[in-house]
Nucleic acid binder design. Structure first.
Lengths: 152, 152
DNA sequence: GTTGAATATCTGACACGTCAACTAACGAGG
DNA sequence: CCTCGTTAGTTGACGTGTCAGATATTCAAC
């Protein structure tokens, strides 16, 4: 007499596990990063993506999609990061609807320092994972991200 | 002359991927669930955990830990779910500091209906994953959750 | 017993993101 | 070229979670 209930579907459990794992990791590692560098983890994610992009710039829309925020959310997030002096807004010369967020030198400076700290914390948290496991994880996460894309 | 920059550490990328994948999946699947059943995804997660627990009850603290919210956040979340009639608060008879959140019959009803919908959506989203892959994923997620636990 | 540290929950003030409505600009057809 | 449908970004109103501090209770040590 095991439970025939729909709430025991294994996929529901797996999905719950995914959210729990990522929420807890972000809370813990995000807190460390913030304490040790003053940089909130979301800011870090924004700055990394800008720094890795051509000319350190990305459109608001592209950034919103990367970080999984709405465009309204990105507008406000960039407002705050800009007030801190880590990014600037540059109107796009060829399409006047679009605005680029561009990382500043100050932004690159704090980002580099934070990356060292963050990488160290990550290495500690993932100390039980060998290279092969990490590579498997990467593959799975890529497939999960794609699974979230609209079904068109 | 590849980039020797600390921001290119592969662990930073992996971690970013994890957050991106889970944020996008939650957004998409959470939206479907809410549209089709009226139940916000967080409510679903709360109700599942209660339904699976002994006597359909859990302390506020245990629930906060499961869902990865602060205790203040759980207080307010349970307030709202209670107003909808899906849970009740029961003071613990043996320790008067603790309160149990208890799922109601109404709560079990809507949960069962939502679980069917959610499981169907998950099956579609995870259609490219075979059983072995899912089991690998489960294992990895468990290890990730544990990696987030305090280092004591 | 009584004291004091620890634990469980709640609350006010506030930060952050969403949603929907709005402005502005692009671009394909007629 | 204009008009209309689409796309990019911003904004006001609001929902939800956090943080720090308050409250109540337990428990171990004296």
């Amino acid at each position: 007499m095991p439970s025939p209930s729909p709430i025991d579907d294994p996929l529901i459990t797996t999905f719950g596990r995914l959210l729990e794992a990522s929420a807890k990791l972000e809370r813990r590692l995000g807190a460390s990063l913030h304490e040790e560098t003053g940089l909130p983890h979301v800011w870090f994610e924004v700055l990394v993506r800008l720094a890795r992009s051509e000319e350190g710039r990305l459109t608001m829309g592209a950034l919103a999609d990367d970080i999984a925020l709405t465009t309204g959310g990105i507008t406000r997030l960039i407002d705050r990061i800009r007030e801190a002096g880590y990014v600037e807004r540059h109107p796009c010369p060829t399409d006047r609807r679009v605005t680029h967020a561009v990382i500043t030198d100050t932004g690159r400076g704090i980002l580099d320092r934070a990356a060292v700290v963050h990488a160290r914390n990550l290495r500690e948290a993932f100390s039980g994972f060998d290279d092969a496991t990490l590579s498997t994880l990467d593959t799975l996460l890529d497939r999960l991200r794609d699974a979230a894309a609209p079904p068109d």
